[in-house]
Amino acid sequence: MSDEQHVLSILVEDRPGVLSRIAGLFSGRGFNIASLCVANAASEGLSRITLVTQADPLVIEQIIKQLRKLINVVKVTDLAEGPAVYREMALVKVSAKPEFRAEILRIVDIFRCKVIDVSAEHYTVEVTGDQGKITALLDLLKPMGVKEIARTGVTALSREQRNGN
């Protein structure tokens, strides 16, 4: 079986050490965490960890079982098992030489991004979307001189089932 990318949504109690135990489970078994996003959940006292990793389905099944056994883990969902919404945000600092400024602004407009900071030599662009959109934007901006990139990593939620539609 080939390794596949999996996005795990892990609802945990907001307590010290929870993230460390989860990361330790992965590192102890030699698995890489490609992306990690943690923030408060809708319910007070809970946080949602969105974790991206790559492994074959049998290994993911074992990881999920082990995660569910950890103290303070409330729920674990492999978002590959059903429909889900995935997003990532990136800040991109790009060189704004006079000959590229109009082109950068056209690209920003096409991708429905925002220029959030302007200096004499750089634009800082904010982009939100799936990984494909962010990669496509970066590919277009690279020839102009991408100076820095900060990405949030994937955040995701499962989709609710629609009734009759």
Rank of each mutant, 00 (worst) to 15 (best):
P98N: 10
G17D: 11
I107F: 04
T152R: 08
I104L: 11
E13M: 07
S158A: 15
I149K: 00
K142N: 12
C37L: 12
I104A: 06
K93F: 02
T50R: 04
F31T: 07
E99Y: 07
L140V: 03
L79C: 04
N72Q: 08
S119E: 08
L141M: 06
A136S: 14
V94Q: 03
A23G: 08
S20A: 15
S119A: 08
Q62H: 14
E126K: 13
D130N: 15
T50L: 04
A23T: 07
V52N: 04
I149S: 00
V38Y: 03
K114Q: 14
T128V: 15
L51R: 02
M1N: 10
E99A: 09
I107L: 14
G132R: 13
F31Q: 14
P16Q: 10
V85E: 15
D78N: 11
V127W: 03
T155I: 15
V92A: 04
A96P: 03
F100E: 13
T53Q: 00
G82A: 11
Q62S: 14
K75N: 11
I49N: 02
H122Y: 10
R68T: 04
S35D: 05
C37T: 15
E99H: 11
T135N: 15
K69C: 03
E148G: 00
I116P: 12
G28I: 05
F111E: 06
T155H: 13
A55Y: 01
S95P: 00
D56F: 14
G45V: 01
I22Q: 00
S20L: 13
V76C: 06
E103T: 14
A120T: 10
V38G: 06
L51M: 11
R162V: 11
L8K: 02
F111R: 06
F26L: 00
D130I: 06
K93H: 05
E121Y: 05
A41E: 04
S119N: 07
T152D: 06
V74D: 01
T53M: 03
K133G: 03
A120W: 02
V85N: 09
L11G: 05
T155G: 05
V74I: 09
E126T: 07
A80N: 13
V12R: 01
A84Q: 06
S158H: 14
E148F: 01
D109M: 03
Q66F: 05
A90W: 00
G17Y: 10
A34T: 07
H6V: 04
G17H: 11
A120V: 10
V118N: 02
A34H: 12
D78S: 02
N40G: 14
